[in-house]
Amino acid sequence: MPNPLDALPNLPRDTAGPVFAEPWQAQAFSLAVKLSEQGHFTWKEWAATLADELKSAAGRGEPDDGTRYYQHWLQALERLVAAKGLSNPQEMQVRKEAWADAYRHTPHGKPVELGTGSPDQKPSRS
């Protein structure tokens, strides 16, 4: 079976698999893998969306040295998630602000959790 990672151009990796510079990158990587495994999009669709993001970045004259690879990965993931109707930009924006707010209001040492007071922090059901 071919390695699915081979479909991803310029993926930062070593002989044992992908490498990450920061925790969020491993989380974004794992999210894409799991969404694909659970059938929300094919790996081929994912690779094409990512390649498209990387191509746009190169078109903007960004250096192709891998330093911003996972920023493009995240951008592609947000785009594909919206295109598949799994979420939408507004919902993601509201949720992001809710997390920032939760960090600001959680004492050090306590796990950061989303509040339940605001209706837009609740999961939306379709």
Binding site: E22, W24, Q27, A28, L74, A98, A100, L114
Partner: peptide, 12 residues
């Protein structure tokens, strides 16, 4: 970037 991933992850 971390917040965006957390937002996406928690929603999904």
């Amino acid at each position: 970037l971390t917040l965006r991933v957390k937002a996406l992850e928690s929603l999904l």
